[in-house]
Design a protein around this nucleic acid. Structure first.
Lengths: 228, 228
DNA sequence: ATTTTTCTTAACAAAATCTTTATGCGTCAC
DNA sequence: GTGACGCATAAAGATTTTGTTAAGAAAAAT
């Protein structure tokens, strides 16, 4: 219900897999990446509630990844590392990491530490994220959408769906993908509900729903958010 | 200026002493105790910004001390322990501890971890602080709330909850977060009690509870305090 | 020990949200 | 054209979430 998302950035597949399964079993939504670059891209399109970051990725330094996340938000980051040098620990903790766990670690302890970081950093971390495209702007901390000064009320799923589109401006998102992201599951080939939601959102944000300016239909594929 | 206080509860005198000196050198105000009972009394008279709590004190169980602190406030607590059993770690982390460091530990790492928990903790309000929003004003020192001159009586938890909202005006606080901050623990997915409290507070401060002016419901998410 | 206050729980009503159903519009292939 | 297909929309129905009340348990005060 209160579904929270964990992003795992870890190049060791067995560990990555093991963590995915454990976290899933504990009720979290999980997404994962095996390189720094894909990790960051997953981060920005999913905006997880907590990040598990392995040190020693093939393509990027851990600190760099952490810094980029910190520039965007205060999302809690737990470092996983095989090396346990004091100097490195301190550097990462001071660079904004919220915890530092040394491999091999106990899965249960890691779960407990995830609960700890999630416990306190709930309201603040998204506060500075604001997306504005055209006359539309979304304030995540206040969970508000406005269209030229005036506030627009969106229901929870409408909000999720609109922000999913706005976080990927210009990109075409397939029906299947949207359904997967918003509802967390897939139905076989029936996107009726999804269409109803699009219609409802459009009614709220488009001046002329027959000539949408923001939410563009890609026939037979999905939708995309205009990016001019 | 912003001098922060660390309370050390540790019966091993050399360690206690060593920590005092290190922390002092890092610019913290330090107070210390060597038993659970005196630790708690130090806690309540000094209201430190962070607590270092040793397990294995002669007179009290660590969990009990932690619980008593958690009943009063969300002050970060870092556990120091010689034993490193997984079960105990998890129990304490879930009981509200913010970190768990196993002896022997590196002083520098501990310092870094103190910085981490301090980074997260909400700034405690000053005793004489007064917040006023709209016709509502709160005097924290006197623990008083008034609505247009006339005083409103709130129970302790009501006060805690209302002020939590008022200290984050405009920001949406999730059910989970509110429960965590007010009660110090989480129940799995049932915010019944929380809703009853909201209704009670509203009855006391809102002119028309069906059209609340101060406490706004964010469906499916939580509540926020109006900020205009 | 008894009264008062506060907190928790359960039941139900009310409101908001989500899903389904029905229907119409436009496009494209035949 | 006409029929199949995908999409848009409205409105009814089902479900979920929230608000409210009241009663019992726990805690605090007397």
């Amino acid at each position: 219900m209160n579904e929270q998302t964990v992003l795992i950035i870890e190049d060791d597949k067995p560990i990555n897999n093991f963590l995915s399964i454990s976290l899933n079993a504990s009720g979290y939504r999980v997404c994962s990446a095996e390189t720094g670059v894909s990790g960051l891209s997953e981060y920005f399109s999913n905006r997880p509630d907590v990040v598990l970051l392995d040190l020693g990725l093939p393509d990027m330094e851990g600190v760099q990844i952490l810094r980029q996340i910190r520039e965007a938000a205060a999302t809690p980051v737990i470092i996983l590392s095989a090396r346990g040098q004091e100097r490195e620990k301190i550097a990462l903790l001071d660079a904004g990491a919220d915890d530092y766990v040394t491999k091999p670690f106990s899965a249960n302890e890691l779960m407990a530490r995830i609960r700890v970081v999630l416990r306190h950093s709930l309201p603040e971390w998204k506060e500075d994220e604001v997306i504005a495209i055209g006359d539309l702007s979304v304030d995540f901390g206040r969970r508000r959408v406005s269209l030229r000064q005036s506030e627009v009320h969106l229901t929870p799923l409408e909000f999720k769906m609109l922000t999913l589109l706005m976080r990927n401006p210009g990109k075409v998102l397939t029906h299947r993908y949207i359904q997967q992201e918003v509802w967390g599951y897939e139905t076989d080939d029936d996107y009726q509900t999804l269409r109803v939601f699009m219609a409802n959102i459009r009614r709220k944000i488009e001046a002329d729903t027959s000539k949408p300016r923001y939410i563009i239909t890609e026939m037979g594929v999905g939708y995309r958010f205009a990016d001019e």
